[in-house]
Amino acid sequence: MSSNRIQQRMDALKASGRKALIPYIVAGDPTPSVTVPAMHAMVEAGADIIELGMPFSDPFADGPVNQRGAERAIAGGMTLRGVLDAVSEFRQKDQDTPVVLMGYLNPLIAMGEVAFCDGCQASGVDGLLIVDMPPEEEGSLVQAAKARGLDLIYLAAPTTTDARLATIGQATSGYLYYVSLKGITGSSKLDTTEVSKRIEHMRQHISVPICVGFGIRTAEDAAAIASTADGSIVGTVLVSQVEALVNDPTKIPEALQSILKPMRDAMDANA
């Protein structure tokens, strides 16, 4: 059931000449009860795929905003089991929107990589993006994920060499996540012409859709990126918004919508 949701969504977008809008939030930030309503709200605002962060205590590839999100989620009692439960609950109402879990390896090892992949399959997860697992370190997680039809999404960076792009292109399925900036999530500078040049180059090595994240803050950013990439991934602005509403979490779903809707509109105006 879960195996082709990402590809189906990407194919459908391509057929209609549109690009993917992919929001990222941390599961359980700031409390477990907000996550599922927030996911539905984001879909309603035009999200095509949801990236859900699995909180980790030491997210060294993320910036301070996302780290604080993870810290709030852990303090609020979110666990890896809780992340899978949130996806199951989301799936009760939404069987179409792909969900990608993004995070770090250690919590998965603690649960057991096979048990984790079983849990993903049972709860309706479609893909995994494990930030600290480059293709060179593929192990039992990758085998277990593939056997259960889970897509494995890998990162590429501005510094990735052509030789590595080829390796990454072989490994990745669903889409490729291009990190548009040197640095961590939430860095500020985004040069869209540079990004589009780079995407054209990467297409020689990568056959799956290329989505771009890191540094997309405004509707203009999202639209500019979507004019060359296959999708815009939006994270830090959303997590900042959650942070601003920690004391008023019921307002979070709507607040996320008011960031995503203008992005959706701007991206579609391009199409």
Partner: peptide, 20 residues
Amino acid sequence: AGGHFGDYGGRYVSETLMAA
């Protein structure tokens, strides 16, 4: 060559660090 001591070590980092 990948920096592994048996099962341990390696380079479990984000792609953004691989080139460095």
